[in-house]
Design a protein around this nucleic acid. Structure first.
Lengths: 214, 214, 214, 214
DNA sequence: CTCTAATCGAGACGGTACGTCGCGTCTTACG
DNA sequence: CGTAAGACGCGACGTACCGTCTCGATTAGAG
């Protein structure tokens, strides 16, 4: 969407971007065919992301990989970026619903362990998401959710703005996880990774600001 | 396809594919015309980056903005990404040669102040570089240089690998600076920014590992 | 052109139809490559018109037949109809410059004979143009030129408007020629065809109105 | 491709390809729902033809205009061209059954007057049919019927083949009527139009060949 | 007066062509 | 040689219609 509108700087400011699909997206509707296509597209995207970064993936490839016609792609997502966002949000949702409760019940220590464990259990997928072409989408999505959570949890005031604190926390977590996943398979155990996360992330948060978040 | 795939890998692959001109690139050659074209292209790139992200900038635009013929662009840079890398490396070099000596002479505290001061003095340019389309190129270039510096300075061993420590440090610096530059003009003074940098970055480095770097 | 603009009834009334080509068309410029492409496209169009009507011919086919890239087609002609118009106008020009002088010098009788002779000598081409998909373009182009000629020659006033007379004349000529060309090769000699033309066309013109034209 | 090519040939090939419904077409069946849909489609087609040529009318538009579902269209007509043929044949039938008897009883003079009167009384409809996108379908349908009538009436032999004579007659009539309908509303009276028809058409037929027809 | 069968509304889908855009190569002519 | 000028091959883009194909809801007219 962004791309299209931006590209047309010349003239043409007023095409209403009329997509084939009438209202929003047929995704997650009741039609079994639509559901199947949607799933196939997500799966195809993930499969391709294992092999190359997003910009090298064409919509045509995704469709072909999904065994779906090219035009059908656009009946589900306006751009490949949108599909990626969907996939990212999807995966992050799962992660959050698994680790957030732990944070509340058992504290940040256990939470980091849960996080590392979950990522380790889906190592291949998360390697794709964090070190492949999806990285920046993941980062953005994570940040979006974290900001929401941080806002809700009304953290103790500090001289460091919450927004910035959140950015730093998310950034550190992402960088550490990415680095971990880039290492040879079992170079660092889950416990070690959790420990590093704990130390690096919380040390930034020594002021107390970030504890609510992480 | 070949070209495209080669171009994309992360940044900085500097594909040495045989381009039109036999002798690599006319950049930094002695021909006064070539020098002028090269400068014009860099300047044009910076000017355009202030207005839109990299992917929305076309080679034709850069050439036009530089007052240079389209084909001439390729006699200087294989792709627009390469040009951006050049520009980024250029700017980072200036920054490093200004702030590194301060670190050695006056310590990390003064160093962060020098860094913040320099960025503030070129606020518009660095806003472009860090929050615009050049962001990931800048991050990559900064990381590349930092890893080199970190390797040279043989930091105290620690349970946190140097590579990871460097990544986290650079990441934090970049995130903090980006956030700062996104704030309304004078929301935070240079001193305040330097202080935040100091606290957040060094707190991660409490173990002593990172001090050598930052 | 027509098609495009008309198709977009929905919204989108304001795309300026910005074609790749900056000004008009590269056709008939001095660049030898452009000239070659232009010729190849015309020839390809004629070859395809021998096999099927215009609506069944796709731009992709024309380009392929011409050994030219698809996008290159649009650098020469906005639509396939425009290409056809070019070809038609081209051929009609040749016909007119051959038969008009005869009309002035030797009268309508000889003129019809010249017309029939010329068409017979390029039987295959004109069969294509008059009985294939190009028919309506040819008719339109012929009419356009005839109206111009008729207007210049200031025909004797009559109770039948000149415009209508011209339409009828052109229509009859086209129908007769088309029918003739559809007949088995040598069913009617050139002289016979000319005689039929003469009788049918001029009989409509008995009032004197049409003589100036035909 | 197969479908497309088959559909196009001139008009009226009436491809009997196996369509969705097993029993050919629900048209003209006894089911009141089917009858209503059929009528709605014809009416919608006519309404749309007043606004734009056939090629710019989409099946979806026709269906929408008729207040009928898109897929329902195909349960009645294989293509929009087929629908147009139906409509054209329909209208021409009415015209023929009104004017042919007059020809037999009162001669060609009265016949032309009847023709012009009928067309004038349905001026809007026939303007659509003759000067809009339906023109070539009308011409073809008229020719088809005329050839049949001409064959039946076994015209006096002449040096001009009956087939050609018929073509010319139909062509002249169509051209004259089209021209008449394009003129401002009451520029020419019905009587004047009939007179022009009479003179131009019959003058071609001075040999007597065409009288039987027209 | 049901019950079976055709008709319809709704819309996803595979498919083909469209016209546009940007890339990077190349050719020609100039200074 | 470096440049201007620009045609070209290439390939992805997103759009538009096509005609086919499930699916339920109705709604006829035969039993």
């Amino acid at each position: 969407m962004k791309k299209k509108q931006a590209r047309q700087t010349q003239a043409r400011l007023c095409d209403t971007m009329a997509h084939t699909s009438p209202s929003e997206a047929p995704s997650s509707l009741t039609d079994p065919r639509a559901i199947k296509s949607g799933q196939a597209l997500r799966a195809a995207m993930l499969r391709l992301l294992e092999r190359k970064p997003l910009e090298q993936i064409t919509v045509r490839e995704i469709a072909a990989e999904a065994g779906v016609h090219y035009a059908t792609f656009f009946r589900h997502h306006p751009t490949k970026e949108a599909l990626l966002d969907d996939v990212a949000a999807d995966q992050i949702d799962r992660l959050v619903t698994l680790t957030l409760p732990v944070l509340d019940e058992a504290g940040s220590d256990a939470s980091f362990l849960a996080l590392a464990t979950y990522v380790d259990e889906h190592r291949s997928l998360w390697t794709t998401l964090l070190t492949g072409g999806a990285a920046s989408a993941m980062r953005a999505e994570l940040l979006r959710i974290s900001q929401r959570v941080a806002a809700e949890r009304a953290p103790t005031e500090s001289y460091i703005p919450v927004e910035l604190a959140t950015i730093c926390t998310v950034s550190l977590i992402v960088e550490i996880l990415s680095w971990w996943l880039r290492q040879p398979a079992e170079a660092l155990s889950v416990a070690q990774a959790a420990r590093i996360l704990h130390r690096l992330v919380l040390s930034s948060a020594i002021t107390g600001t970030l504890e609510a978040l992480a």
